[in-house]
């Protein structure tokens, strides 16, 4: 019966040389100049008031996003809402630890997001490995792989802490300091190198997954 096994469909990056395979983006990202003065301030205000979270529960942290989305904490009133597709999302919430397998998807999702994009990292695990500091399958510092704007400590951080984290993120955005997208573009080689060190198998479908 093993002969009946489905053949995996060919993947977009299959057959490419290794170094090219590693690049998820068709073109390496480039930096974008912010608009000038008042216009950028206005844009930043709008960005801060309309935070669309990518609905990707990468770890335990997802568990406290649900109360936050729902009626008890109701983050909609702060202009925050979940969004199912990375193309439309502006905030990536890294919910704690990231296993290597998930990290690959995180990188992919992050690269699919349109700038300016922001990353909020929850919990100890994203800062320095957390309780999985000696695990063979979880990374220790998310900032090695994608730029992070705000860290929220706790295990798990309560919804209120998350909310406070988003408010902090808003401040950062309004102050024009949330330039993670450009940071990623500027240090693209460094980030890729770190990613390559950890992720051994880059093969994956060319859309979503």
């Amino acid at each position: 019966m093993s002969s009946k096994k489905i053949e995996m469909a060919p993947l977009a990056n299959e057959g490419l040389p290794l170094e090219e395979r590693a690049l998820f983006c068709d073109v390496p990202p480039r930096e974008y100049e912010p608009a000038r003065g008042v216009i950028e301030d206005f844009y930043n205000w709008a960005r801060s008031q309309s935070l669309w979270i990518l609905g990707f529960g990468t770890g335990c942290g997802a568990i406290e996003l649900r109360p936050l989305m729902t009626s008890r904490f109701d983050m909609y009133r702060f202009g925050i809402q979940p969004r199912a597709t990375p193309r439309q999302s502006s905030v990536f919430v890294i919910g704690g630890y990231a296993s290597v397998k998930t990290l690959k998807r995180i990188v992919r999702s992050y690269e699919q997001m349109m700038g300016p994009k922001f990353v909020v990292a929850l919990g100890s695990c994203t800062i320095n490995g957390g309780m999985y500091w000696d695990s063979y399958n979880t990374i220790k510092r998310i900032d090695q792989y994608i730029p992070v704007d705000t860290y929220i400590t706790g295990c798990m951080p309560r919804p209120e802490a998350l909310l406070a984290g988003f408010q902090e993120l808003k401040k950062i955005i309004r102050a024009g300091r949330a330039e993670g997208q450009n940071l990623y573009a500027r240090n693209f080689e460094w980030y890729k190198e770190n990613q390559k060190k950890v992720i051994k198998d880059w093969n994956m479908p060319d859309y979503n997954w």
Binding site: Y32, Q49, S50, S71, D74, Y76, R77, G115
Partner: peptide
Amino acid sequence: SAKVQGRVGQPVWQPYIDIIKSIAKRNSI
């Protein structure tokens, strides 16, 4: 809708902000 769901809900002008935000995105493919 939010009221039915037992919550406060987004500001009435939220759609405006969302549109401005979308327009303010820097890149697209």
